[in-house]
Amino acid sequence: MILDRFLLTDRVAVVTGAGRGIGAATAVALAEAGADVVVSARTKDDLDAVAERVSAVGRRAHVVAADLSDPDTVAGLAETAREAFGRLDVVVNNLGGTYPRPLLDTSTEFLEQAFRFNVSTAHALTRAAAPVMLAGDGGAVVTISSIMGRVSGRGFLAYGTAKAALAQLTRLAAYDLAPRIRVNGVAVGSVATSALDLVLDNDEVRGRMERATPLRRIGEAQDVAAAVLYLASPAGAYLTGKVLEVDGGLQAPNLDLGLPDP
């Protein structure tokens, strides 16, 4: 059956930023498909809650509460997966995010921090994971990029630049690691996670965002998790170096920060 191609039975995945939102939904989705998961983020209580959801569907979760802004710490998750579960098949580089700032308030240091948090960490984990995957059956890497990596909007210089770099890293890594490791990405639009709480709690702003989105709604974490599962599973076996746009059809930002002319 075609649905069997979406299964990850007895595979092992690492998901970063897995405490809430997209990362948590993705970890649970992979577990529902049959994978054991290493879940990592800063807050242990959040990870424990995700681990309970993983256990509820009959799979195992290994919790790593850590500051993942350090690339060396992120890289260590590959060996953690091997030690905990004996193998590694899927990596989901979900770590990322940067506060919006206008260009004149964006220092070079701030830009470099955004790049390190969104790109360097993904590179570090992918590089560490590859030998572990190649020692087994190969695997799949999925990065989480953003619509702001391909469109323009005021205030998103650091974030958009980093996410564009992450998308290109995805394409280039796919060539380097083919054919046994596939590398793909998901470029997300506005998704209802804690990062957007302040915006989405305002009915007027939320309404404007929904009207500016062709599908007339804000995305849900499971929308992204479903795309990740497709890319990580045998269902996506003939894709590598691709970035799926899971953004409700956006061709421009649906949130205007209202920044004035300089």
Rank of each mutant, 00 (worst) to 15 (best):
A212H: 07
A221M: 09
R217A: 05
A221N: 07
A212P: 09
V224Y: 12
L231V: 01
G219F: 04
A227I: 01
E204N: 11
R216Y: 05
A221I: 09
R206Q: 06
M209R: 03
D223F: 12
R217F: 04
A212K: 13
A221Q: 09
E210C: 07
E220I: 01
A212R: 14
R216T: 08
R211V: 02
E220A: 15
P234V: 14
A232G: 10
D223H: 12
A226E: 12
M209W: 02
A221C: 12
R206G: 08
V205S: 07
S233L: 11
E204P: 09
P234C: 14
Q222H: 14
R211M: 06
D223Y: 11
D223K: 07
Q222S: 15
A232E: 10
A226L: 05
G207T: 11
T213G: 03
P214K: 03
R206N: 05
L215G: 00
T213P: 01
A225V: 07
A225W: 05
G207C: 02
E204C: 08
P234Q: 13
A212N: 12
A212Y: 07
R208K: 14
R211H: 06
L229T: 00
G219I: 02
L215F: 04
L231D: 03
G219N: 06
E210V: 07
V228F: 04
V228I: 10
M209P: 05
V224R: 05
Q222D: 15
V205Y: 05
Y230P: 00
E220P: 01
V224N: 08
G207E: 09
Q222Y: 10
S233E: 09
V205F: 04
L231S: 02
R206I: 08
P234M: 13
R206V: 06
A212V: 10
S233K: 13
I218Q: 11
